[in-house]
């Protein structure tokens, strides 16, 4: 039980990702496919974020003391105190990329709809053949 709790996030990540992947591959509605895609991507983002989490850490903004001239005073920083900034900025990028892909996918969906009058992949394939 302890083990599962300690790795709970990873298990959820796997389930979410696989849910998204399954949706992308097997759902027939285009919008649903895109939602699945977004779910898949957030799964990966969650994976990154949970690898960067540290128990009892604060957000990665250094508590900094300044001298009178607004110059920072040198201080030793223990990285254990702050959450991992690297995974966070990677995921900032991933989120933006994700929404860009989503937007593009939606634009395509609209065009597909105006072309085939349907959002259902099966129906479109049927009309094409």
């Amino acid at each position: 039980m302890d083990y599962i709790l300690n790795h709970f996030n990873y298990i959820i990540v796997v389930i979410i990702m696989m849910l998204g992947l399954w949706g992308m591959l097997s759902l027939s509605n285009l919008v649903k496919k895109l939602i699945s895609m977004a779910i898949f991507q957030t799964g990966i983002i969650l994976f990154y974020i949970s690898m960067g989490a540290k128990k009892g850490s604060s957000i990665p903004i250094i508590k900094q003391a300044y001298d009178d001239h607004h110059h920072p005073i040198h201080q030793t920083i223990n990285h254990i105190d702050y959450a991992n900034p690297l995974t966070q900025i990677l995921m900032l990028t991933a989120i933006v990329v994700g929404v860009a892909t989503l937007g593009l996918g939606l634009a395509l969906t609209q065009r597909v709809y105006s072309e085939h009058k349907s959002l259902n992949e099966d129906e479109i394939l049927e009309s094409l053949s």
Partner: peptide, 10 residues
């Protein structure tokens, strides 16, 4: 998980 910037963006 202390990823406040990511949460903000999301």
């Amino acid at each position: 998980n202390a990823a406040i910037d990511v949460a903000f963006t999301e």
